[in-house]
Simulated assay, not measured.
Amino acid sequence: MSIGYFLKVWIIPIISALIIASFINKILFFNIVLPPSGSMIPTLNDYDRALVSRIYNMENTKRGSIIVFYSQELDKLLVKRLIGIPGDKIEIKDGIVFVNGDRLEEDYVKNIDDYNGIFEVPEGKYFFLGDNRPNSNDSRFWKNPYILSNDIEGKVQFRFYPLKDFGWAN
């Protein structure tokens, strides 16, 4: 077997596959291990592993999506539920969320608290809450409750570990 044949049959396809995999990982998708915060229980649990699609246009997201973003204030990546988009008025009464006057249907929230507050989401910014409201350090408690669109990394699509929870994230 010649060196040329070996390169053509083995090395070039392997290098090509690595380049394509790297492209997909950097441009289209990435994996995340959920940090130990408890804020998304029972939807997502601490240390779950999930596939995240990159977001390049926030207009393609909708309220209720599970989003990965960087918090400048906390200096770390977080995973929370998108509640408010630019221009929204968020009012929370005894833990019940109202967006622009309408009660938000949140079947994913199993534990509520008695929090009360009003927020107006500025242009280019977003408002996030965890699903486990009594145990979530989210927009309600930050000095700056809004996240810039530039700090939003992606949308959680699919949980692949643990295997017992394998499936779409919603």
Rank of each mutant, 00 (worst) to 15 (best):
N31V: 00
S53E: 08
R159N: 06
P134W: 09
K62W: 11
V121Q: 01
I12T: 08
K8G: 00
M1D: 08
E73K: 11
G38C: 12
K62I: 11
Y146P: 14
P162Q: 02
R133D: 05
D94S: 07
T43I: 09
F128T: 08
E105P: 11
V99I: 14
L82M: 13
N100S: 05
L77V: 06
D46L: 04
S136C: 05
D46P: 10
M1R: 14
E59F: 01
F6A: 01
D113Q: 01
L44D: 07
S37A: 12
L34Q: 11
G117F: 06
S16E: 12
Q157Y: 01
K125I: 00
K89T: 13
D75T: 08
K110M: 02
I90R: 06
E120C: 06
I15H: 03
F127E: 09
D107E: 13
R103S: 08
G4W: 04
E73T: 12
Y56V: 00
F141Y: 09
S65W: 14
S16F: 15
D46V: 05
D94W: 00
L129Q: 13
I92M: 07
S2Y: 08
V156W: 12
W142C: 11
T43W: 06
G154C: 12
P35H: 06
F29I: 15
F30Q: 10
L148S: 14
S139L: 02
E73N: 11
P13N: 06
F127H: 12
K62G: 02
R140Y: 01
D48R: 05
D107C: 06
L7P: 00
L163E: 03
F160A: 02
Y126R: 03
S65C: 10
L163G: 00
S139Q: 05
G95L: 12
D46F: 06
S2N: 15
K8F: 01
V33T: 12
I96N: 12
I96M: 07
L34A: 07
I12F: 10
E73C: 11
N144P: 11
L77A: 14
G4C: 01
G167S: 09
S22T: 13
P86T: 05
K164D: 10
F141A: 02
K8P: 00
D48V: 02
F29E: 10
F158P: 13
Y161F: 10
R140S: 04
P134T: 09
V156Y: 09
M58G: 04
D46W: 05
A50M: 01
G154A: 13
D48K: 04
N57T: 07
F23V: 14
V109P: 04
L44P: 13
F127V: 10
N132G: 11
